[in-house]
Amino acid sequence: MTARILIVDDQPDIRKLIRLTLQHLDDVEIQEADNGGDGWRMAQDFKPDLMLLDVMMPGELDGYQVCAKVKSDPLLKGQTKVILLTARAQKEDEEQGRKAGADAYLTKAFSPLKLLDLMDNMLGRTA
C-alpha cells in the first residue's frame, strides 16, 4: 500500500532533507507545499496519510492552524497523522501542538533516522 505524505515547510532545505530521507522508500507518494495555506488546500485534495508540518510559516496559516483544520475536517481527521516540525522547543509550544491535535512534535534539527522511525510507527509499518 502506498503511503501519501505531505511535507509543508517554508524552508526548501528542510523539504529537501525530508525528501532525501524518504527517497529510498518505493511505496510512498510525496507532495510538498511551502506555506500553510497551500498546505491546507493540498491536504484537502491529496488526503495524505501523514503530514510533516512546520509550525512557523509565512502567510495566512501557521502550522498549528493547519493542524487544527486537518484534525477537525471530517474527511481527514481519522486518516491523516500530523507530525509538527519546529525549532520551538518550549513546553508551551508542545502543549499548543497537542491542543491543535498533533500526533507528534519533533524539534529541528531532527535526526532523519528518528523521523523515519516515527513515521513508520505512525503509518503502522515495520522498520
Rank of each mutant, 00 (worst) to 15 (best):
R41F: 10
Q90W: 07
D27K: 02
K47F: 04
V70Y: 00
V82N: 10
E94S: 05
L75C: 06
M51W: 05
E29D: 06
D103Y: 14
G63Q: 04
G97M: 12
T80L: 10
T80Q: 07
L52W: 03
G37I: 12
Y105T: 05
G37S: 09
K91E: 15
A87L: 15
R41V: 09
R41G: 09
L25R: 11
L75S: 09
L53V: 07
V70E: 05
Q96W: 00
V70N: 04
G63W: 02
M57W: 05
D26S: 00
N35Q: 10
D45V: 13
A87H: 13
M57R: 05
G78Q: 08
D93E: 15
Q44V: 12
K47C: 07
E32A: 01
L25C: 07
V70T: 10
A43N: 09
D73T: 06
Q23H: 00
S72I: 08
N35T: 00
A33H: 03
R98T: 14
N35F: 02
G39T: 04
A43S: 12
K81I: 14
C67V: 01
Q79A: 13
A33F: 02
L61F: 13
Q31F: 05
G36T: 12
K81R: 15
Q96F: 03
Q96G: 05
M57K: 06
R88E: 12
D73H: 15
F46G: 07
W40I: 07
L50C: 08
Q79I: 14
A102E: 01
D54S: 12
D73R: 06
A87S: 15
A104S: 14
L61I: 02
L84I: 15
G97C: 11
L61P: 02
W40Y: 07
D26Y: 00
A87W: 13
D38F: 00
D34P: 04
E95D: 08
E94F: 07
M56N: 10
K47S: 04
E94L: 06
K71T: 01
A43Q: 11
L25I: 08
V55G: 03
M42I: 11
T107V: 15
Y64Q: 01
P48N: 10
Q96N: 06
Q79C: 14
M42Y: 13
P48T: 14
Q90R: 14
Q65P: 02
A104N: 13
G39R: 01
Y105Q: 08
E60D: 04
D54Y: 11
K69P: 11
Q31P: 02
